[in-house]
Amino acid sequence: MNSQEALSRLKDGNARFVSGKPTAATQNQDARQHLTEGQSPYAIILSCADSRVAPELAFDTGLGELFILRVAGNVANTSTIASIEYAVANLGTKLIVSMGHESCGAVGAAVAGGDNGPNLNKLVSYIQPSVDKLGKDAPVTDIIKENANHSIATLLEKSDIIKNAVKNDGLELVSGYYSLSTGEVEFGF
């Protein structure tokens, strides 16, 4: 499946989710058994760890369809980059989505600033360039979207595997924004 087919499939699944008519059928014993032989997810989703954001549900998918990385603020750090590289290099996945969401607490922490302890401070440091670019007074939604774009830029900057797959293998990177209130995912801003 190429990147455009994968993106279309995500959009179709999201439309079913938003309309309340999900059809994902690969959540049963047969699907689990088939997946013991391997995986071939059609998209990689770098998403926030927020409990209100569930990419499998938002895109109406089942087991084995998405390669999902969840970390507060959907940041591209060493661990998420390495995991994404694995999927690109070994699973042949052609689409990466960096998906922020409405009311992201990690972005809110970056905007608020202050000392949140060494671990959260490190996480927030990955989001800070988006706050700095737009300013603390910018609408939080705009900063969340910029953070999704920044994660894409970081993936391209920090990974030769991803960069080469874009250049030579048809890999595409797209930003996304999930609305908690509607369930709709906006792509590419």
Score class of each variant (00 low, 15 high):
97 V>P: 02
11 K>S: 12
40 S>R: 15
58 A>F: 11
96 I>E: 01
47 S>G: 09
65 E>Y: 10
79 S>D: 15
44 I>W: 03
139 P>Y: 04
159 S>H: 12
151 S>Y: 02
132 D>T: 10
120 L>W: 03
18 V>K: 00
54 A>V: 15
60 D>R: 01
39 Q>S: 09
13 G>Q: 08
162 I>S: 04
114 G>E: 05
121 N>V: 01
119 N>Q: 15
127 I>H: 01
13 G>V: 02
142 D>M: 06
158 K>A: 10
104 C>E: 05
148 A>Q: 04
26 T>F: 13
175 S>N: 13
8 S>T: 14
171 L>Q: 00
143 I>R: 00
6 A>E: 02
61 T>P: 08
128 Q>F: 06
162 I>K: 06
94 K>C: 01
15 A>W: 10
171 L>I: 01
110 A>D: 06
87 A>N: 01
4 Q>W: 12
99 M>Y: 02
23 T>L: 13
30 D>L: 15
135 G>Q: 02
36 T>M: 14
134 L>R: 01
60 D>S: 04
116 N>E: 11
143 I>H: 00
156 L>D: 09
22 P>L: 03
150 H>A: 14
4 Q>Y: 11
58 A>G: 08
15 A>G: 09
107 V>D: 04
139 P>R: 03
80 T>F: 00
144 I>C: 12
126 Y>F: 14
99 M>L: 08
72 A>S: 11
138 A>Q: 02
140 V>R: 14
183 G>D: 02
106 A>R: 06
88 V>E: 00
101 H>R: 05
178 Y>D: 07
27 Q>N: 15
77 N>M: 08
66 L>A: 08
114 G>N: 07
99 M>H: 02
72 A>L: 12
165 A>Y: 02
44 I>A: 05
41 P>M: 02
105 G>F: 01
161 I>Y: 09
113 G>L: 05
126 Y>H: 13
91 L>R: 06
126 Y>T: 05
120 L>E: 04
63 L>W: 12
137 D>R: 09
87 A>E: 00
16 R>F: 06
21 K>L: 12
91 L>M: 09
165 A>C: 04
19 S>D: 13
137 D>K: 13
135 G>D: 03
49 A>F: 10
87 A>C: 05
74 N>V: 07
54 A>C: 12
46 L>C: 01
65 E>Q: 15
152 I>G: 03
88 V>R: 00
92 G>A: 03
1 M>I: 12
92 G>E: 02
116 N>R: 15
28 N>C: 12
98 S>P: 04
108 G>C: 04
167 K>D: 14
2 N>L: 09
164 N>F: 09
62 G>V: 13
85 E>M: 10
